[in-house]
């Protein structure tokens, strides 16, 4: 009888051990996976290359300003204002992307009942350029020029506008099918000088005038429920693709790529979209 009781007690201990193992393994917090792009690939209608006998003239450099922001980031609207000022001054030579991501959860976690603007590409961009110490943060042309100080953004952007671009970019045949949520465009990327480095391109879908909640330390209301979110990056149909894989690309080399992109379903008003 004693042996039986001892064994029963042992079995109980074994069960407790098994339970602890399962508990440790599965009740711990869920792991955050890396980004895997499971979207259907975009349709490439044209993909060709040729050399222009008379190369294009040099194009002034447009600046890509990636604004890493968040709906709970009270200082971020200051950066939004700087960007709007830059766009007023320099028009479409300033290409701004507002990027909401999963890092800095204190700043980026969506409010209950409001839309989640976060996209996984934001973290992938930070993996490429390096994670900042906090928000707001802006990257300029994904170069070494990046800043957490909003006051510097204008001068950095204008410095970069003074440079020239080695690749001339032109867009034609733009069609926005609002019924079927499809966007089509043809892109021409032409080398205006010989290059011995890799050039990458991305295509992003932006939406403007999206009204949602935003913390704004400069606003008396503080929690602005009808904040106008501009340059909201919805998707990257093409993310960080290399234009060509040749070690040296000659002057005049032109790549033509025509895409048909299915627009993300969370877009509120397709008319407020651009690529």
């Amino acid at each position: 009888m004693k042996t039986f009781l001892q064994q029963k007690s042992s079995m109980t201990t074994m069960k407790i051990f098994s339970f602890l193992v399962v508990l440790i393994c599965f009740i711990s917090c869920k792991e955050q996976p890396p980004f895997i792009d499971l979207k259907p690939p975009l349709i490439l209608l044209t993909d060709t290359t040729y050399i222009k006998s008379i190369p294009d003239s040099v194009q002034p450099h447009n600046v890509l300003l990636e604004d890493f922001t968040g709906v709970r980031c009270g200082n971020c609207p200051r950066g939004h204002k700087i960007i709007e000022d830059l766009k007023t001054l320099h028009g479409n030579r300033v290409v701004a992307l507002a990027l909401h991501g999963e890092d800095f959860t204190n700043f980026t976690t969506p409010y209950d009942g409001y839309e989640d603007f976060r996209i996984p590409y934001t973290r992938r961009i930070l993996d490429i350029i390096g994670k900042p110490s906090g928000l707001p943060f802006a990257s300029f042309d994904r170069s070494e020029s990046s800043s957490n100080t909003v006051g510097e953004w204008k001068s950095i952007a204008e410095r970069r506008l003074d440079s020239i671009s080695p690749v001339r970019l032109a867009i034609s045949d733009k069609i926005l099918d609002t019924t079927n949520m499809i966007f089509k465009a043809k892109y021409y990327m032409s080398y205006t000088q010989e290059l011995n480095e890799n050039i990458y391109y991305s295509v992003a879908i932006l939406e403007y005038e999206v009204i949602s909640r935003q913390l704004d330390d400069d606003n008396a209301v503080h929690n602005v429920l009808d904040y106008h979110h501009e340059n909201l990056t919805r998707d990257f149909p093409v993310f960080f693709k290399q234009i060509n894989k040749l070690p040296i690309t000659e002057k005049g080399r032109t790549y033509v790529k025509e895409f048909e992109v299915k627009l993300p379903e969370n877009i509120k008003d397709v008319k407020n979209c651009t690529e």
């Binding site: 393994c25 792991e31 996976p33 890396p34 980004f35 895997i36 792009d37 499971l38 979207k39 259907p40 690939p41 993996d127």
Partner: peptide
């Protein structure tokens, strides 16, 4: 894991999957 994720992102869509940090 990042190198694995980069490799998976280069696969055809049908062969992509989400890798995990932890395996038991």
């Amino acid at each position: 894991l990042n190198s694995i994720a980069n490799e998976i992102n280069a696969y055809d869509l049908t062969n992509r999957f989400i890798p995990r940090y932890n395996t038991y």
